[in-house]
Amino acid sequence: MQRNGMPYARAGQVVGLLGGSFDPAHEGHAHISKAAITRLGLDRVWWLVSPGNPLKEKGPAPIADRVSRAKAVMQHPRVQVTDIEQRLGTRYTAETIAKLQIAYPDVRFVWLMGADNLTQFHLWQNWQEIMHRVPVAVFARPGDRISARMSRAARMYRENRLIGRAASLLGQSEAPVWTFINLPMSQSSSTAIRNAGDWTPGTVVGDDDEN
Rank of each mutant, 00 (worst) to 15 (best):
M1R: 11
R3T: 13
N4L: 13
N4M: 09
G5H: 08
P7V: 13
P7D: 12
Y8K: 08
Y8T: 04
R10V: 00
A11L: 05
A11I: 04
Q13N: 10
Q13I: 05
Q13Y: 08
Q13R: 13
V14M: 03
V14T: 15
G16K: 10
L17P: 01
L18A: 08
G19R: 10
G20K: 09
S21Y: 10
D23I: 08
P24I: 14
A25E: 03
E27R: 15
H29N: 02
A30K: 11
A30G: 00
S33C: 15
A35N: 11
A35F: 00
A36G: 07
R39N: 03
D43P: 01
W46H: 10
L48Y: 09
L55W: 11
K56L: 11
K56D: 07
A61V: 08
P62T: 08
D65T: 12
D65Y: 09
R66E: 09
V67C: 05
A70F: 02
A70N: 03
K71S: 05
A72Y: 06
V73N: 05
V73T: 14
Q75Y: 00
H76I: 09
P77V: 09
V79I: 15
Q80N: 04
V81Q: 03
D83K: 11
I84N: 06
E85D: 12
T93Q: 05
T93M: 15
I97C: 01
A98C: 02
K99W: 01
L100K: 05
I102C: 04
Y104V: 11
D106A: 15
V110C: 02
V110I: 13
M113D: 03
G114H: 09
G114K: 13
G114C: 08
A115K: 02
A115S: 15
N117M: 12
L118H: 02
H122A: 13
L123V: 04
W127T: 03
Q128M: 05
Q128T: 07
E129W: 05
I130R: 01
I130N: 01
P135W: 11
A137T: 05
V138E: 05
V138G: 04
V138R: 03
A140T: 10
P142R: 14
G143R: 14
D144M: 14
D144H: 14
R145P: 00
R145T: 14
R152V: 13
A153I: 08
A154S: 11
M156L: 15
Y157T: 03
R158C: 05
N160M: 01
R161S: 00
L162M: 10
I163A: 02
I163C: 00
R165M: 07
A166E: 13
A166P: 00
S173V: 07
V177W: 04
W178G: 03
W178I: 09
F180K: 07
F180V: 11
N182G: 05
P184Q: 09
P184L: 06
P184F: 06
M185N: 12
M185T: 05
S186D: 13
S189R: 05
S189Q: 06
A192Q: 13
N195M: 10
N195D: 14
D198N: 08
W199K: 06
G202F: 06
V205D: 00
G206V: 07
D207C: 00
D207V: 13
D208A: 14
E210A: 11
N211G: 06
